[in-house]
């Protein structure tokens, strides 16, 4: 591989010291690379959970079957909400990259709000399933369904906490144009969670499920 050390002109801190704390060899930020490496790993996590769901989706024992219980119109709305939160997330980043701190803050909070709406929808979905007789222990299908969507929900919740933390540091004046990479990294996480939901929405909800 052919490589020169890329020292980014924009980042004076790196690579210009005689005893050689070289900046990053690839010119890529360590943090961003770490997040991408992590997301690569997360693919296998969600892949495992989704597979565990798929092989169990027709095993609903005596409980409700997925085809009977899913409320597609409702889930479509909450999926749409999460999808749009990706737009607001990227707008938040774009604002901060322009140095527009006010809009950045607004979009961050909007993203967190949309995420919370999604979580609220999930809580509603879970409770209505419970009312209809689908508990966590009802069947292999129910365990797998709640585990998969629950893990996704926890990921979204963690994302909301990160977004709120960003918003707080923005109010404290510490989130400025030069740390836009932090927003970008949180954004990567957020989009990833969204992308996982795109997959789940299609494969778990829209592809016809077994009925009893």
């Amino acid at each position: 591989m052919s490589e020169a050390i890329v020292t980014e002109a924009g980042e004076p801190a790196r690579g210009d010291h005689d005893h050689g704390d070289h900046g990053t060899l690839t010119g890529i930020s360590n943090n961003k690379l770490l997040m991408w490496v992590f997301l690569g790993s997360e693919c296998l996590l969600f892949g495992g959970l989704i597979s565990a769901y798929l092989i169990n989706r027709s095993r609903f024992h005596t409980g409700p079957a997925p085809g009977d219980i899913f409320d597609i119109p409702f889930t479509s709305v909450s999926s749409f909400v999460l999808l749009m939160s990706s737009l607001t997330m990227v707008l938040a980043l774009s604002a901060l990259q322009r140095g527009d701190i006010r809009n950045n803050r607004i979009w961050l909070l909007t993203t967190a709000l949309l995420g919370s709406l999604f979580i609220g929808g999930q809580v509603y979905e879970f409770t209505s399933f419970l009312r209809e007789g689908l508990g966590y222990t009802t069947s292999p299908f129910s365990s797998a369904f709640f585990t998969l969507t629950g893990f996704h929900g926890i990921h979204v919740s963690v994302g909301i906490v990160m977004l709120m933390s960003l918003a707080i540091s923005s109010y404290r004046g510490t989130l400025t144009q030069k740390n836009s990479e932090t927003v970008e990294i949180v954004g990567l996480y957020w989009h990833f969670v969204d992308v996982v939901w795109i997959f789940i929405f299609t494969v778990i909800y829209l592809v016809p499920s077994p009925t009893s």
């Binding site: 690839t26 010119g27 890529i28 961003k32 690379l33 991408w36 490496v37 997301l39 690569g40 790993s41 997360e42 693919c43 296998l44 969600f46 892949g47």
Partner: peptide, 16 residues
């Protein structure tokens, strides 16, 4: 950077 794409695609393909 193409490196990011590689990590993500590697994870995706492997998982799939």
């Amino acid at each position: 950077s193409i490196l990011f794409r590689r990590f993500f695609v590697a994870g995706l393909i492997l998982a799939t």
